[in-house]
Amino acid sequence: MAVVLLAFLVAPTVMIVIVSFWGATEYSIYPDFQFDNYEFLFGSPVTYTVFFNTLKYTFITWVLTLVIGFTVAYFLAFEVRSLKWQIALFLLCTIPFWTSNIIRMISWIPFLGRNGLANSTLMSWGVIDEPLEWLLFSDFSVILAFVHLYTLFMVVPIFNSMMRIDRSLIEAARDGGASAFQTLRHVIIPLCKPGIMIGTIFVTTLVMGDFITVRFMSGSQRANVGRLISNDISLLQYPSASATAVVLLITVLIVIGLLLRLVDIRKEL
């Protein structure tokens, strides 16, 4: 186990950190120890905009996936009574994941387009007179795709936590005179914390590391950190890409560190 981790996790990460101090020319990279890459990164206003964008996408996606994911999990765990139906509906949620996530993402494009299904339907209902331009190639479409792609990562761990809740606790709360909301607030949510936290970590890391969704759904008009890195790589600027990757890695680790301070997953599991 240690060897596997060392070879496939630690070594590549160390490599990225080392390369981030190297220099680059148009067509090659050379070993060096310089801070140019970081200097440029922190000196450029683009970096801050792009990191801000990344965090913005992450936060909004997190809120939406949490609300939707929690609701779906709640329905599956508490509203659906028979185990057979629970399993059936749960499997239904996973069906879209049998296709590639690129396909699921791209299929939004014709749907949301100027002459797409959404606009033509709304126009035929008389809700709008002009096609809505902001449906596609906007922050809206980026976040829509993120939520669509990653909600399941919220549903699964939360559903798992909910299924472990001892039903007698909920009965006890009801017997004690708690309203449905009070039960949710004081019994279910606290007991779902580990699930919520695991889902949060999934969604946060997936959204922060993404580049392809942002590129396709914004029509290349928006940027997040992943796109910055992929641009650098495609232009052979590996050291600068590595430096950005290192900063992103540290940012993600800080976010996860903060989350873990809120909930001690080991203890809760």
Binding site: I109, P110, G113, N115, R215, G219, S220
Partner: peptide, 20 residues
Amino acid sequence: QFRAFWKTFDESVNLMASGE
């Protein structure tokens, strides 16, 4: 001014063909 930017051949075809 811009609806989108494109990077691959088929993206440019789709943007134009769909009237975006």
